[in-house]
Design a protein around this nucleic acid. Structure first.
Lengths: 343, 343
DNA sequence: CTGAAAGCGCTTACAG
DNA sequence: CTGAAAGCGCTTACAG
């Protein structure tokens, strides 16, 4: 490496480039950032480029950050990257972030309030320019400090959510309506005893609301039956389904609040010697990749996670570029009922 | 917010804290960083803490980065976060990173050489202190620039790999041996026509080597049969299996280079009116979460992704703390054959 | 068209 | 025990 020889292992700076090119450090910065105002003649630019190349110069991003107050980094806050709903969401964010020159840091909250708070606090250190997040506990008003230092936020919500005059946009699918449609599908198939399986917090309330709405709309004498367990995963679904089965008079259909729970429930049903969908039909939510791999393939509500990630990142970057209106935008995303074999 | 009132929306600095506490800015820095040398008396510390709290002070990390030449950020470079092998790996990294005060940025290479290069180059800007990565094309020698500016790297390899006197540690499972064991298991079950299904680059060669070794060890007249397709996912597996089936004389068992391909292959087998494992047995590799959700549940080689992530992060952080030997460490990780229903 | 200079907010010898 | 000062590498008015 040339610069190693020249500089004894230290990284070359604009000063070094300037010396080699026979210009001032200001000029180096000017050609590097190519602002409209400064029209450095082509001949000089080339000299500078050659010097940069020969020294292996790369900008020091800490210095640039300090000077410009911009980090070119976004943070994505999700419950847990190992939940198969999120990788596609994160990947969508990463894709548009990369196209726009941003890095993305990911934080996992584990659905814990304390961690949501801790992460938000650390963001104040100025490491990131903006936030995309799914929050179970933190409300918009808890983000006031962020807004004061001008860090915009995009939130993924489970329902339409007004946000006021903050640099806060939100993205949602109508979870209640989707849950209603899933439940109505089961009802339309002739099921009269339809149970719901859910985890704590998060999307629970919106999805439960849709489930109840569908029951009520269908007939007045349908019994609601909501089984809540500790976690939104297979073991939660398995355990919840066992509780339902052990209650004596099992339902003929189950609406699970997400696919992981639905898959756990199907296993519990199978272990009880029953078959899906003949004895008990199952519908999930999310359409994670595994939904079509299981047997029977899962009927579920599809969300477009990758698209949601891309859209969220676009909203955020528009705002960072000053291209967003003052008032928070609210974007509804599509969903669809995907009918496969489990119901 | 107090500081908003006081400072007109600007973030408070150590200077502001110093003024409020009636000390010098140096002292504020001293109590913030609490170095062993400076013993600030308790009374002064308290005054400073109170002032920090009242102003809502948080350190400016860009300034700290510039001064200390440390970013407290790691980067994790993987092929693609949506491949279910990686989320657990990333999650392991994030967990120990967080415990040690590091953020983690994730880059997806899409298995492309160009992107591997581009990411490595951007790392020279000083955004990150260290790198954990899976590289299909970039060799250790291509990382010389990183090492010159003292950025250590931990690589995930598919076999033991000497690394020399660079700040480079490596982690691997013996892919050849694992593939050999998987194939031998099939052979032990009496199969004589065992095909292998693989994608391009990456772990292909090591796993193929193990497959061939097992065949040879078992008997001299066993025919090797390797079908390579474009991608390590379900559609690759589906497509590859179709090619195998259409060849006329199908094998009685298939070893797929990863679980996603195995799942695709099982679907192709089913679509051809055959049943797994009766007509064709299938073994995968990785033990992704979906492996136990599919029917029949997949027999596969389990890797401990989360553990691998944790271990990789530990190696890196030890080196960043100056606790690692000069010579690169090589850590072998365990794997195990998990027998389920598909073979 | 080009450069000297200020200053972003911090850490860390150094002096007292 | 505490503070004045240097300096990390950059961007951006400003002057010429």
């Amino acid at each position: 490496m040339i610069f190693k020889k020249r500089l004894g292992g230290k990284k070359p700076t604009q000063h070094d480039v300037a010396q080699l090119a026979g210009v001032s450090q200001t000029t180096v910065s000017l050609v590097l950032n190519n602002p409209e105002v400064a029209s450095v003649p082509e001949e000089t630019r080339q000299r500078v480029f050659i010097a940069m190349h020969n020294l292996g110069y790369v900008v020091n991003s800490a210095a640039r950050m300090l000077r410009t107050n911009r980090s070119n980094t976004l943070v994505c806050i999700i419950p847990m990257i190992t939940n198969p709903f999120y990788p596609a969401f994160v990947s969508g964010i990463q894709e548009v972030a990369e196209q726009n020159g941003y890095d993305v840091i990911t934080y996992n909250t584990h659905g814990s309030q304390e961690r949501e708070r801790k992460f938000l606090k650390s963001i104040l250190e100025g490491r990131v320019d903006g936030v995309i997040g799914i929050f179970f506990y933190t409300q918009a008003r808890d983000m006031a400090q962020l807004f004061e230092v001008n860090i915009p936020v995009v939130r993924l919500e489970v329902r339409e959510q007004r946000s006021g005059e903050w640099p806060l946009d939100s993205l949602y699918i109508d979870n209640a309506q989707a849950a209603c449609q899933a439940t109505a599908y089961l009802l339309g198939k002739g099921h009269r005893r339809v149970a719901m399986l859910t985890g704590p917090a998060g999307p629970r309330d919106a999805r439960k609301e849709g489930y109840l709405t569908a029951l009520k709309a269908h007939s007045d004498d349908l019994q609601a039956w909501v089984q809540e367990v500790d976690s939104y995963n297979e073991s939660g679904g398995y355990q919840g389904m066992r509780m339902i089965l052990e209650s004596g008079d099992p339902p003929t259909a189950v609406f699970a609040a997400n696919d992981l729970m639905a898959i756990g429930a199907m296993k519990a049903i199978r272990d009880a010697g029953l078959v899906v969908p003949k004895d008990i039909a199952v519908v999930g939510f999310d359409d994670i990749p595994a939904a079509q791999m299981v047997t029977p393939a899962l009927t579920t509500i599809r969300q477009f996670q990758e698209e949601m990630g891309k859209r969220a990142a676009q909203l955020l970057i528009e705002r960072l570029n000053g291209e967003a209106p003052l008032v928070g935008r609210i974007v509804e995303m599509p969903y669809e009922l995907v009918i496969r074999e489990s119901a």
